[in-house]
Amino acid sequence: MTPATPSATTPVPALSLDRPPGPAECDAVALRLAGIAAAAGVILRHYELGGCRHHLKADGSPTSQADLAAEAQIVAALGEAWPGIPVIAEETAAEAAPAALFFLVDPLDGTKDFLKGTGEYTVNIALVSGERPVAAALAAPALGRIWAAGTRALEAPIVEGGPGAFRPVAARPAPPEGMTALVSRSHGEAADEACLAGLAVARRRGVSSALKFGLLACGEGDVYVRCGPTMEWDTAAGDHILTQAGGCLVGPDGRPFGYGRRPGQYRNGPFAAFGDPSRAARAVLPATSPTRAG
């Protein structure tokens, strides 16, 4: 059976801070998030093709008109669909407090690549319950691909600014000839290399942004290591999609991430993401990331 495609008429499941969403609700939320992410992608494509003013934030990372415009649309759409559920978003709501249920939003992950015109950037939206994401969407507007996950991982083409027909996807077992590592085009740490050196990596593929998670979920790569600093909105959506595709993301203790770390200002530690969870125990990660945000 082909999974439903979100539309303006797709029923919006009610969400309450008083109870966690059930499986059917998570699936419906994921489809609606996919529609919201794809709509934000239309805004990003407009700026990408027409020019975009940008500047550096205090931490040295870039932000742009596109980030702000896409985030405004996402936050408004989430507020309309689920009033009362907090939204933690990179550009305008990074200091908001989490709750029993909350959204994490990165309207433009991979701003550097967006500004360079590589097309390897994403829109990330995740619903978190009990410190773990339970529904998510990740769109790659310039590549015409979008992923979503509630209780299972799905992918669809982006057609006329919205998701087309979804199909289930699954991560692949680690190939016997060696894994393909998805490595960042703009970030890199000596610790990343040290961790990869201890794994059976046969080849590397340069990929930017949270797109790596989508590719892992589809079996187009096997491992992604990041020891440098990232934020929760960078990883939550991809983490859930990869996990529902059969893969995993683990920290230095070998356990999945918990989300809603406001005392740490939503900063992640080092992690390794695998398509094949049987390889996760081989990852040797440093205990902490550098303090400078990436």
Results as ranks from 00 to 15, higher is better:
P141G: 03
E193P: 05
G198M: 04
R185Q: 11
S129W: 09
E160C: 11
G162E: 08
R152P: 04
G214W: 08
V134Y: 00
P176S: 09
A200Q: 12
L154S: 02
L154H: 05
E131P: 15
P163L: 04
R152A: 14
V201R: 06
A181K: 01
I146W: 01
V207I: 13
T151A: 11
L199K: 05
I125V: 12
D192Q: 01
P163G: 01
V207A: 02
S209Y: 09
V134L: 07
A139E: 05
P173C: 07
A190S: 12
T180L: 09
P133C: 05
A148N: 08
L199A: 05
V183E: 07
E160R: 11
R203I: 07
A136V: 09
E155G: 04
F166H: 02
G214S: 10
V159S: 12
V134W: 07
S184V: 08
E160M: 10
V169M: 08
A210K: 07
A142I: 02
I125Y: 03
P168I: 06
V207W: 01
A197N: 09
A156G: 00
G178D: 09
V159P: 00
L143G: 14
P133K: 02
R132H: 12
A142D: 13
E155K: 14
D192E: 10
G206Y: 15
R205Y: 10
P133R: 03
G214M: 06
A165R: 12
P141L: 01
G130K: 08
E189K: 14
R185P: 09
